[in-house]
Simulated assay, not measured.
Amino acid sequence: MAEFLSLQEAVSRHIKNGDTVCMEGFTHLIPFAAGHEVIRQEIRDLTLVRMTPDLIYDQMIGAGCAKKLIFSWGGNPGVGSLHRLRDAVEKGWPSKLEILEHSHAAMACAYEAGAAGLPLAVLRGYVGSDLPKVNDQIKFIECPFTGERLAAVPSIRPDVAVVHAQRADRKGNVLIEGIVGIQKEAVLAAKRSIVTVEEVVDDLNAGVNACVLPSWAISAVVVAPRGASPSYALGYYDRNNAFYKEWDGIARDREAFQSWLKDNVFNKGAAQ
């Protein structure tokens, strides 16, 4: 059952060195505040999982938190590359980063399989693709009913899932509105989960077919206003497009990145 904790306590209690951690959120509701707390606590040797690694993973990789990245697309949306990720892969700074690349479809299927408690996911993708040449986690099997050749990938069952949402009720149930990615499946697949929210309310006012994460599936709920900024939270604030453009210049240079990290993550955290 969900506990209401501070961000510092939730991360300290639930994310440990060497864990496999997924921080999901598609286009909006990206859990930046939680990622910054991981950086502040200097958690190391994480295997980071995300369908679309963007700025938050670029920051965590550049801060030395990660040893491996499992992903299906990586970049600064609408701008270009993730320069801290590239520096880690190509030059080993601040430490060497191992990468394992999948398609979006395979990762979505793997999360769904993890949420269902299954050991693997089966899909029609990858037949004729070059990804199996560089990803030894992609195998091929024969359907026992039709004889069709299908791809199989291990299910994603992370130690910790971290997502951001609009609001929680006082029992710890959480409502996600707007574009929903793979957050629900990530939380259900994980051993532990942290959900940051904009606010706590008496009634979620969830509509028909709303995406509600039940309290029993969540380890910790954290009130973190603007916890998804510079991405956006539908109904609360817009995307800070200017920052995504600025990040390209900040991330290209190691010293500029370290200065930004000190001013905007470590010093900001100390002031809170």
Results as ranks from 00 to 15, higher is better:
A2F: 02
E3V: 08
L5C: 13
S6G: 10
S6N: 13
L7P: 09
E9M: 07
D19C: 10
M23T: 06
G25S: 12
A34M: 00
E42N: 15
V49P: 12
T52Y: 08
L55H: 03
D58A: 05
I61Y: 11
A63T: 06
A63W: 03
L69F: 07
L69M: 15
I70L: 06
G75P: 03
G78R: 07
G80S: 10
L82F: 00
A88N: 06
K91C: 04
W93E: 15
K96G: 04
E98A: 11
E101H: 09
H104G: 07
A105Q: 14
A105H: 11
M107H: 12
C109G: 14
A110R: 15
A110K: 07
E112T: 13
E112N: 06
G114D: 05
P119V: 13
L120Q: 15
Y126F: 15
Y126V: 01
G128N: 02
D130A: 12
K139Y: 02
K139A: 05
I141Y: 02
E142I: 04
P144Y: 10
E148D: 15
R149F: 01
V153P: 02
V162N: 04
H164K: 10
K171H: 12
N173M: 00
N173V: 11
N173W: 01
N173I: 04
I176G: 03
E177V: 14
E177I: 12
G181I: 09
E185I: 00
A190G: 14
S193Q: 03
D203Y: 12
D203I: 01
L204Y: 00
A206F: 01
A206S: 14
C211D: 11
P214I: 05
W216Y: 13
A217Q: 13
A220Q: 10
V223D: 06
P225F: 01
Y232S: 14
A233H: 00
Y237E: 12
D238N: 15
N241A: 08
F243L: 08
K245T: 07
E246A: 09
G249E: 13
D253S: 15
E255V: 08
A256F: 00
Q258V: 03
L261G: 07
V265H: 14
G269P: 08
A270G: 00
